Simulated scan of single mutants.
Amino acid sequence: MADEDGIFWSATEEPHPARDLSRASMRAVARGDKQAWVALFAEDGFVADPVGPSMFDPEGHGHHGRTAIAAFWDTAIAQAERIEFHIADSFAAGDESANVGLIRTFLGDGSCMDAEGVFVYRSAGGGLLHSMRAFWEVDRAMATLRQAD
């Protein structure tokens, strides 16, 4: 069942700083709150979504610093009409949490797409994220493109 913010969480509820930050990140994205999402990252934080070269990051170096993270939002996240998170499991160790599941993106043309993967969040301490790295395959996600129900 989804919470009020479009997060379908079937994983452990055990508190952990990185897991808690991952959920805060997902809530901000699902609400469309760019300012809250960018503010979760440390000044030197970074996003790699997906990890490696992609249409959002041709060089595959990630988006480093809050200005680049905000630009990533404008290029990738803002294009969605709605985003849901379906998290089946979560593994926390050290200062990181790896969430397993899928991100369902609804587009303005009535279509949707699922990106299955592993989404790794690393805490920088002080309630901030050092990084968010999303391991998913663009071709696999594109193969799920369909009209939304």
Rank of each mutant, 00 (worst) to 15 (best):
M1W: 13
A2M: 02
E4Y: 07
E13Q: 08
E14D: 13
P15H: 11
H16L: 13
P17W: 15
A18S: 07
R19C: 09
M26Q: 05
M26L: 04
A28F: 03
A28Y: 05
V29G: 08
A30G: 10
R31W: 06
W37L: 14
A42I: 08
G45R: 07
V51Y: 10
G52Q: 12
M55C: 13
M55Q: 10
F56Y: 14
F56R: 00
E59L: 14
R66Q: 14
A68Y: 05
A68P: 00
A68R: 09
A68W: 02
A68C: 10
W73E: 01
D74H: 04
T75V: 10
A78P: 01
A78F: 10
E81Q: 13
F85H: 07
D89F: 12
D89Q: 13
D89N: 14
A92E: 03
A93W: 08
G94A: 11
D95Y: 02
D95M: 04
G101Q: 08
I103N: 00
R104E: 09
R104F: 03
G110L: 09
C112L: 07
A115M: 06
F119A: 03
V120F: 13
G125I: 02
G126T: 09
G127A: 12
L128S: 11
H130I: 02
H130M: 11
A134C: 10
A134L: 12
A134V: 01
D139R: 12
T144K: 15
L145G: 10
R146V: 06
Q147G: 08
Q147H: 15
A148W: 01
